[in-house]
Design a protein around this nucleic acid. Structure first.
Lengths: 191, 191
DNA sequence: AAAAATTGTAGACAAATGTCTATGAAATAC
DNA sequence: GTATTTCATAGACATTTGTCTACAATTTTT
Protein backbone atom coordinates (compact mmCIF):
# COMPACT_ATOMS: atom_id res chain seq x y z
CA UNK A 1 0.00 0.00 0.00
CA UNK A 2 1.15 3.51 -0.73
CA UNK A 3 2.58 4.97 2.49
CA UNK A 4 0.67 8.22 2.02
CA UNK A 5 -2.58 6.29 1.57
CA UNK A 6 -1.93 4.37 4.74
CA UNK A 7 -1.11 7.59 6.58
CA UNK A 8 -4.16 9.53 5.44
CA UNK A 9 -6.44 6.64 6.33
CA UNK A 10 -5.39 6.99 9.96
CA UNK A 11 -7.09 10.39 10.05
CA UNK A 12 -9.88 10.29 7.47
CA UNK A 13 -11.44 7.33 5.73
CA UNK A 14 -10.76 7.63 2.02
CA UNK A 15 -11.58 5.50 -0.99
CA UNK A 16 -8.96 4.47 -3.52
CA UNK A 17 -10.47 6.99 -5.95
CA UNK A 18 -10.12 9.76 -3.37
CA UNK A 19 -6.54 8.77 -2.91
CA UNK A 20 -5.77 8.72 -6.64
CA UNK A 21 -7.12 12.25 -6.75
CA UNK A 22 -5.19 13.38 -3.70
CA UNK A 23 -1.99 11.72 -4.82
CA UNK A 24 -2.08 13.52 -8.15
CA UNK A 25 -1.46 16.79 -6.30
CA UNK A 26 1.75 15.57 -4.72
CA UNK A 27 5.21 15.53 -6.26
CA UNK A 28 7.78 12.93 -5.14
CA UNK A 29 11.21 14.25 -4.26
CA UNK A 30 14.45 12.75 -2.99
CA UNK A 31 16.80 14.77 -0.85
CA UNK A 32 20.28 13.52 -0.05
CA UNK A 33 21.87 13.84 3.35
CA UNK A 34 22.85 17.45 4.13
CA UNK A 35 20.87 18.74 1.16
CA UNK A 36 18.34 21.49 1.85
CA UNK A 37 14.60 21.44 1.33
CA UNK A 38 14.36 25.08 2.42
CA UNK A 39 16.86 27.85 3.05
CA UNK A 40 16.58 31.04 5.06
CA UNK A 41 15.13 33.85 2.98
CA UNK A 42 13.28 31.51 0.62
CA UNK A 43 9.53 31.17 0.56
CA UNK A 44 8.35 27.75 1.64
CA UNK A 45 6.43 26.74 -1.47
CA UNK A 46 5.63 23.20 -0.35
CA UNK A 47 4.96 21.08 2.68
CA UNK A 48 6.73 17.74 2.48
CA UNK A 49 5.41 14.44 3.75
CA UNK A 50 8.37 12.28 4.70
CA UNK A 51 8.16 8.71 3.41
CA UNK A 52 11.70 7.81 4.31
CA UNK A 53 14.53 9.55 6.08
CA UNK A 54 15.12 12.09 8.84
CA UNK A 55 15.23 15.87 8.67
CA UNK A 56 15.54 18.93 10.85
CA UNK A 57 14.38 22.53 10.80
CA UNK A 58 16.65 25.13 12.35
CA UNK A 59 17.54 28.77 12.34
CA UNK A 60 20.93 30.41 12.61
CA UNK A 61 21.28 33.27 15.10
CA UNK A 62 23.55 36.35 14.86
CA UNK A 63 26.44 34.42 16.38
CA UNK A 64 26.09 31.68 13.79
CA UNK A 65 24.71 29.15 16.26
CA UNK A 66 22.11 26.78 14.86
CA UNK A 67 18.94 26.31 16.89
CA UNK A 68 16.97 23.22 15.98
CA UNK A 69 13.27 23.90 16.06
CA UNK A 70 11.87 20.63 14.71
CA UNK A 71 12.95 17.08 14.06
CA UNK A 72 11.18 14.96 11.51
CA UNK A 73 11.18 11.29 10.57
CA UNK A 74 8.86 9.07 8.53
CA UNK A 75 5.22 10.18 8.49
CA UNK A 76 5.97 13.74 9.59
CA UNK A 77 5.45 16.92 7.63
CA UNK A 78 8.46 19.13 6.94
CA UNK A 79 7.98 22.80 6.19
CA UNK A 80 7.71 26.30 7.61
CA UNK A 81 4.02 26.85 8.10
CA UNK A 82 4.30 30.59 8.49
CA UNK A 83 6.13 31.08 5.21
CA UNK A 84 3.89 28.51 3.51
CA UNK A 85 0.65 30.17 4.59
CA UNK A 86 1.66 33.82 4.52
CA UNK A 87 3.97 33.64 1.51
CA UNK A 88 6.72 35.43 3.41
CA UNK A 89 10.45 34.59 3.40
CA UNK A 90 11.35 31.96 5.94
CA UNK A 91 13.82 32.41 8.76
CA UNK A 92 14.39 28.67 8.87
CA UNK A 93 16.51 26.12 7.10
CA UNK A 94 15.32 22.57 6.55
CA UNK A 95 17.81 19.90 5.60
CA UNK A 96 18.12 16.14 5.58
CA UNK A 97 19.98 14.27 8.33
CA UNK A 98 19.70 11.09 6.26
CA UNK A 99 18.91 10.46 2.60
CA UNK A 100 15.20 11.17 2.48
CA UNK A 101 12.17 10.71 0.27
CA UNK A 102 9.25 13.13 0.35
CA UNK A 103 5.95 13.90 -1.27
CA UNK A 104 5.55 17.62 -1.77
CA UNK A 105 2.35 19.60 -2.02
CA UNK A 106 2.05 23.29 -2.84
CA UNK A 107 -0.08 25.83 -0.99
CA UNK A 108 -2.39 26.26 -3.97
CA UNK A 109 -2.96 22.54 -4.18
CA UNK A 110 -3.76 22.23 -0.49
CA UNK A 111 -6.40 24.94 -0.97
CA UNK A 112 -7.86 23.17 -4.01
CA UNK A 113 -7.91 19.80 -2.28
CA UNK A 114 -9.52 21.19 0.83
CA UNK A 115 -12.44 22.37 -1.26
CA UNK A 116 -12.60 19.46 -3.68
CA UNK A 117 -12.09 16.62 -1.31
CA UNK A 118 -13.86 16.48 2.07
CA UNK A 119 -11.51 13.76 3.26
CA UNK A 120 -8.54 16.03 2.68
CA UNK A 121 -10.28 18.84 4.54
CA UNK A 122 -10.84 16.42 7.40
CA UNK A 123 -7.19 15.40 7.27
CA UNK A 124 -5.89 18.95 7.56
CA UNK A 125 -8.26 19.72 10.42
CA UNK A 126 -7.12 16.69 12.35
CA UNK A 127 -3.45 17.20 11.64
CA UNK A 128 -3.67 20.75 12.90
CA UNK A 129 -5.51 19.58 15.99
CA UNK A 130 -2.79 17.06 16.72
CA UNK A 131 -0.10 19.59 16.03
CA UNK A 132 -1.76 22.10 18.36
CA UNK A 133 -1.90 19.48 21.09
CA UNK A 134 1.72 18.45 20.77
CA UNK A 135 3.13 21.97 20.53
CA UNK A 136 1.12 22.89 23.63
CA UNK A 137 2.88 20.08 25.46
CA UNK A 138 6.25 21.15 24.19
CA UNK A 139 5.70 24.71 25.37
CA UNK A 140 4.54 23.53 28.77
CA UNK A 141 7.64 21.39 29.09
CA UNK A 142 9.87 24.17 27.87
CA UNK A 143 8.68 26.84 30.29
CA UNK A 144 8.35 24.70 33.39
CA UNK A 145 10.92 21.90 33.45
CA UNK A 146 14.66 21.70 34.04
CA UNK A 147 16.98 20.45 31.31
CA UNK A 148 17.04 17.02 32.92
CA UNK A 149 13.24 16.64 33.04
CA UNK A 150 12.88 17.98 29.53
CA UNK A 151 15.24 15.30 28.29
CA UNK A 152 13.41 12.62 30.26
CA UNK A 153 10.17 13.81 28.73
CA UNK A 154 11.73 13.77 25.30
CA UNK A 155 13.02 10.23 25.68
CA UNK A 156 9.62 9.03 26.88
CA UNK A 157 7.67 10.77 24.14
CA UNK A 158 10.07 10.24 21.25
CA UNK A 159 12.23 7.17 21.94
CA UNK A 160 12.80 6.65 18.21
CA UNK A 161 14.31 10.14 17.93
CA UNK A 162 16.95 9.26 20.50
CA UNK A 163 18.27 6.49 18.27
CA UNK A 164 18.01 8.52 15.14
CA UNK A 165 19.59 11.90 15.87
CA UNK A 166 22.97 12.67 17.43
CA UNK A 167 22.99 14.18 20.90
CA UNK A 168 24.02 17.68 19.93
CA UNK A 169 20.99 17.86 17.64
CA UNK A 170 18.68 16.69 20.40
CA UNK A 171 20.28 19.10 22.86
CA UNK A 172 19.62 22.02 20.55
CA UNK A 173 16.03 20.88 20.04
CA UNK A 174 15.59 20.92 23.81
CA UNK A 175 17.11 24.37 24.07
CA UNK A 176 20.27 23.31 25.88
CA UNK A 177 23.90 22.83 24.85
CA UNK A 178 25.43 19.48 24.01
CA UNK A 179 27.63 19.84 27.09
CA UNK A 180 24.62 20.16 29.35
CA UNK A 181 22.92 17.20 27.72
CA UNK A 182 26.03 15.12 28.21
CA UNK A 183 26.03 16.02 31.92
CA UNK A 184 22.33 15.29 32.23
CA UNK A 185 22.76 11.86 30.68
CA UNK A 186 25.65 11.06 32.97
CA UNK A 187 23.56 12.03 35.96
CA UNK A 188 20.65 9.89 34.77
CA UNK A 189 22.91 6.85 34.28
CA UNK A 190 23.79 6.91 37.97
CA UNK A 191 20.14 6.23 38.85
CA UNK B 1 -22.36 44.62 15.71
CA UNK B 2 -22.00 41.39 17.64
CA UNK B 3 -18.34 41.00 18.61
CA UNK B 4 -18.32 37.35 17.54
CA UNK B 5 -19.72 38.30 14.13
CA UNK B 6 -17.05 40.91 13.70
CA UNK B 7 -14.38 38.45 14.74
CA UNK B 8 -15.48 35.63 12.45
CA UNK B 9 -15.69 37.99 9.52
CA UNK B 10 -11.98 38.64 9.81
CA UNK B 11 -11.33 35.04 8.88
CA UNK B 12 -14.25 33.92 6.72
CA UNK B 13 -16.88 35.96 4.98
CA UNK B 14 -20.25 35.11 6.48
CA UNK B 15 -23.79 36.30 5.90
CA UNK B 16 -26.04 37.42 8.74
CA UNK B 17 -27.98 34.17 8.30
CA UNK B 18 -24.79 32.17 8.65
CA UNK B 19 -24.04 34.05 11.79
CA UNK B 20 -27.47 33.53 13.29
CA UNK B 21 -26.95 29.84 12.73
CA UNK B 22 -23.44 29.85 14.17
CA UNK B 23 -24.40 31.99 17.14
CA UNK B 24 -27.18 29.57 18.11
CA UNK B 25 -24.52 27.00 18.97
CA UNK B 26 -22.79 29.28 21.47
CA UNK B 27 -23.73 29.85 25.10
CA UNK B 28 -22.88 33.16 26.80
CA UNK B 29 -21.16 32.94 30.16
CA UNK B 30 -19.80 35.41 32.68
CA UNK B 31 -16.88 34.51 34.88
CA UNK B 32 -15.89 36.69 37.81
CA UNK B 33 -12.29 37.47 38.67
CA UNK B 34 -10.50 34.45 40.16
CA UNK B 35 -13.34 32.12 39.15
CA UNK B 36 -12.41 29.06 37.15
CA UNK B 37 -13.52 28.08 33.67
CA UNK B 38 -11.62 24.78 33.94
CA UNK B 39 -9.94 22.90 36.77
CA UNK B 40 -7.29 20.21 36.71
CA UNK B 41 -8.84 16.78 36.34
CA UNK B 42 -11.94 18.06 34.60
CA UNK B 43 -12.68 17.46 30.95
CA UNK B 44 -12.67 20.63 28.90
CA UNK B 45 -16.20 20.50 27.52
CA UNK B 46 -16.13 23.88 25.80
CA UNK B 47 -13.85 26.33 24.10
CA UNK B 48 -14.57 29.89 25.16
CA UNK B 49 -14.37 32.95 22.95
CA UNK B 50 -13.53 35.93 25.15
CA UNK B 51 -15.65 39.00 24.50
CA UNK B 52 -14.44 40.90 27.51
CA UNK B 53 -11.88 40.29 30.20
CA UNK B 54 -8.53 38.58 30.70
CA UNK B 55 -7.76 34.99 31.60
CA UNK B 56 -4.88 32.60 32.06
CA UNK B 57 -4.23 28.90 31.68
CA UNK B 58 -1.74 27.29 34.05
CA UNK B 59 -0.73 24.06 35.64
CA UNK B 60 0.47 23.38 39.15
CA UNK B 61 3.59 21.24 39.55
CA UNK B 62 4.49 18.82 42.38
CA UNK B 63 5.93 21.67 44.42
CA UNK B 64 2.73 23.66 44.09
CA UNK B 65 4.25 26.22 41.75
CA UNK B 66 1.92 27.57 39.08
CA UNK B 67 3.25 27.64 35.53
CA UNK B 68 1.32 29.90 33.21
CA UNK B 69 0.97 28.37 29.80
CA UNK B 70 -1.33 30.86 28.08
CA UNK B 71 -2.65 34.36 28.54
CA UNK B 72 -5.91 35.43 26.95
CA UNK B 73 -7.68 38.73 26.41
CA UNK B 74 -10.56 39.85 24.17
CA UNK B 75 -10.91 37.92 20.90
CA UNK B 76 -8.87 34.95 22.11
CA UNK B 77 -10.04 31.41 22.67
CA UNK B 78 -9.68 29.92 26.13
CA UNK B 79 -9.60 26.16 26.59
CA UNK B 80 -7.42 23.07 26.73
CA UNK B 81 -7.41 21.75 23.21
CA UNK B 82 -6.07 18.34 24.15
CA UNK B 83 -8.80 17.66 26.69
CA UNK B 84 -11.40 19.21 24.39
CA UNK B 85 -10.48 17.06 21.40
CA UNK B 86 -9.50 13.83 23.12
CA UNK B 87 -12.05 13.96 25.92
CA UNK B 88 -9.36 13.31 28.52
CA UNK B 89 -8.98 15.01 31.93
CA UNK B 90 -7.06 18.25 31.71
CA UNK B 91 -3.85 18.97 33.56
CA UNK B 92 -4.58 22.69 33.34
CA UNK B 93 -6.55 25.27 35.23
CA UNK B 94 -8.13 28.23 33.48
CA UNK B 95 -9.30 31.18 35.53
CA UNK B 96 -10.18 34.82 35.07
CA UNK B 97 -7.72 37.60 35.89
CA UNK B 98 -10.53 40.14 35.43
CA UNK B 99 -14.31 39.80 35.32
CA UNK B 100 -14.84 38.19 31.93
CA UNK B 101 -17.55 37.44 29.40
CA UNK B 102 -17.33 34.47 27.09
CA UNK B 103 -19.21 32.59 24.42
CA UNK B 104 -18.86 28.87 24.90
CA UNK B 105 -19.13 26.16 22.29
CA UNK B 106 -19.05 22.41 22.91
CA UNK B 107 -17.00 19.87 21.00
CA UNK B 108 -20.11 18.29 19.50
CA UNK B 109 -21.30 21.65 18.25
CA UNK B 110 -17.97 22.47 16.64
CA UNK B 111 -18.20 19.16 14.78
CA UNK B 112 -21.76 19.87 13.67
CA UNK B 113 -20.94 23.41 12.56
CA UNK B 114 -17.87 22.30 10.66
CA UNK B 115 -20.06 20.04 8.54
CA UNK B 116 -23.11 22.27 8.29
CA UNK B 117 -21.46 25.58 7.71
CA UNK B 118 -18.54 25.97 5.28
CA UNK B 119 -17.68 29.36 6.74
CA UNK B 120 -17.23 27.82 10.18
CA UNK B 121 -15.03 25.11 8.68
CA UNK B 122 -12.98 27.84 7.05
CA UNK B 123 -12.77 29.68 10.35
CA UNK B 124 -11.42 26.69 12.27
CA UNK B 125 -8.87 25.97 9.54
CA UNK B 126 -7.58 29.51 9.61
CA UNK B 127 -7.55 29.78 13.39
CA UNK B 128 -5.51 26.61 13.63
CA UNK B 129 -3.15 27.88 10.97
CA UNK B 130 -2.61 31.09 12.91
CA UNK B 131 -2.23 29.20 16.15
CA UNK B 132 0.34 26.89 14.58
CA UNK B 133 2.29 29.89 13.35
CA UNK B 134 2.33 31.69 16.67
CA UNK B 135 3.17 28.65 18.78
CA UNK B 136 6.04 27.92 16.39
CA UNK B 137 7.39 31.38 17.12
CA UNK B 138 6.97 30.93 20.82
CA UNK B 139 8.88 27.64 20.77
CA UNK B 140 11.66 29.15 18.72
CA UNK B 141 11.95 32.00 21.19
CA UNK B 142 11.82 29.66 24.13
CA UNK B 143 14.60 27.33 23.01
CA UNK B 144 16.98 29.91 21.61
CA UNK B 145 16.76 33.20 23.50
CA UNK B 146 17.88 34.44 26.91
CA UNK B 147 15.32 35.63 29.45
CA UNK B 148 16.02 39.22 28.46
CA UNK B 149 15.44 38.68 24.75
CA UNK B 150 12.35 36.61 25.40
CA UNK B 151 10.89 39.47 27.38
CA UNK B 152 11.83 41.99 24.68
CA UNK B 153 10.14 39.76 22.13
CA UNK B 154 7.10 39.48 24.34
CA UNK B 155 6.80 43.24 24.78
CA UNK B 156 7.13 43.78 21.03
CA UNK B 157 4.62 41.11 20.09
CA UNK B 158 2.09 41.62 22.88
CA UNK B 159 2.35 45.20 24.19
CA UNK B 160 -1.25 45.09 25.42
CA UNK B 161 -0.44 42.08 27.61
CA UNK B 162 2.22 44.06 29.44
CA UNK B 163 -0.39 46.57 30.60
CA UNK B 164 -2.92 43.95 31.42
CA UNK B 165 -1.14 41.28 33.45
CA UNK B 166 1.08 41.67 36.51
CA UNK B 167 4.75 40.95 36.11
CA UNK B 168 4.86 37.70 38.01
CA UNK B 169 2.22 36.31 35.64
CA UNK B 170 4.22 37.39 32.61
CA UNK B 171 7.40 36.00 34.12
CA UNK B 172 5.81 32.61 34.56
CA UNK B 173 4.46 32.72 30.99
CA UNK B 174 8.02 33.33 29.80
CA UNK B 175 9.36 30.46 31.87
CA UNK B 176 11.34 32.60 34.32
CA UNK B 177 10.82 33.71 37.91
CA UNK B 178 9.44 37.10 38.87
CA UNK B 179 12.82 37.92 40.40
CA UNK B 180 14.59 37.32 37.11
CA UNK B 181 12.03 39.40 35.23
CA UNK B 182 12.50 42.22 37.70
CA UNK B 183 16.26 42.12 37.10
CA UNK B 184 15.79 41.98 33.34
CA UNK B 185 13.54 45.04 33.41
CA UNK B 186 15.98 46.97 35.54
CA UNK B 187 18.75 46.13 33.10
CA UNK B 188 16.61 47.24 30.15
CA UNK B 189 15.78 50.55 31.82
CA UNK B 190 19.44 51.46 31.88
CA UNK B 191 19.53 51.43 28.09
C1' DA C 1 44.47 2.85 4.51
C1' DA C 2 45.00 7.54 5.72
C1' DA C 3 42.99 11.95 6.50
C1' DA C 4 39.24 14.62 7.88
C1' DA C 5 35.04 15.48 10.03
C1' DT C 6 31.67 14.21 13.48
C1' DT C 7 30.42 12.80 17.91
C1' DG C 8 30.44 12.35 22.92
C1' DT C 9 32.70 13.28 27.23
C1' DA C 10 35.35 15.84 30.73
C1' DG C 11 36.88 19.64 33.64
C1' DA C 12 37.61 24.55 34.87
C1' DC C 13 35.57 28.61 35.02
C1' DA C 14 31.90 32.26 33.92
C1' DA C 15 27.34 33.82 33.43
C1' DA C 16 22.52 33.34 33.96
C1' DT C 17 18.88 32.14 36.62
C1' DG C 18 16.63 30.33 40.84
C1' DT C 19 15.75 30.56 45.92
C1' DC C 20 14.89 32.91 49.91
C1' DT C 21 14.09 36.73 52.92
C1' DA C 22 12.86 41.33 53.55
C1' DT C 23 10.60 45.64 52.50
C1' DG C 24 7.56 49.18 50.90
C1' DA C 25 3.93 50.63 47.71
C1' DA C 26 -0.34 49.84 45.76
C1' DA C 27 -4.63 47.57 45.29
C1' DT C 28 -8.36 45.12 47.44
C1' DA C 29 -11.26 43.45 51.07
C1' DC C 30 -13.58 44.14 55.26
C1' DG D 1 -10.71 53.98 57.12
C1' DT D 2 -8.11 50.06 58.46
C1' DA D 3 -6.47 45.58 57.65
C1' DT D 4 -5.05 42.36 54.34
C1' DT D 5 -3.44 40.80 50.19
C1' DT D 6 -1.00 41.53 45.99
C1' DC D 7 2.79 43.27 43.62
C1' DA D 8 7.48 44.81 42.49
C1' DT D 9 12.12 45.29 43.90
C1' DA D 10 16.47 44.30 46.27
C1' DG D 11 20.38 41.67 47.96
C1' DA D 12 22.82 37.41 49.43
C1' DC D 13 23.66 33.07 48.17
C1' DA D 14 22.95 28.46 45.67
C1' DT D 15 22.25 26.00 41.57
C1' DT D 16 21.96 25.38 36.84
C1' DT D 17 23.56 26.07 32.53
C1' DG D 18 26.81 28.04 29.16
C1' DT D 19 31.57 28.61 27.36
C1' DC D 20 35.83 27.02 26.20
C1' DT D 21 39.50 23.79 25.61
C1' DA D 22 41.02 19.24 25.17
C1' DC D 23 40.77 14.56 23.83
C1' DA D 24 39.47 10.05 22.32
C1' DA D 25 36.27 7.18 19.69
C1' DT D 26 33.74 6.75 15.73
C1' DT D 27 32.24 7.69 11.19
C1' DT D 28 32.85 9.58 6.73
C1' DT D 29 35.54 11.07 2.92
C1' DT D 30 39.33 10.84 -0.05
Amino acid sequence: MHPLFHYINQYAIISEEDFEDIQSYFIPKKIGKKQHLLKEGEICKCMGFIVKGAMRKYYTDEKGTEHIVNLYVENWWAGDRESFVMGTPSVYHIDACEDSELFLISRENTLILRNECPAFNELTLKLDEQSTISTQKRITSSISLTAEKRYEDFVNNHPYFVQRFPQHIIASYLGITKDTLSRVRKKMLRK
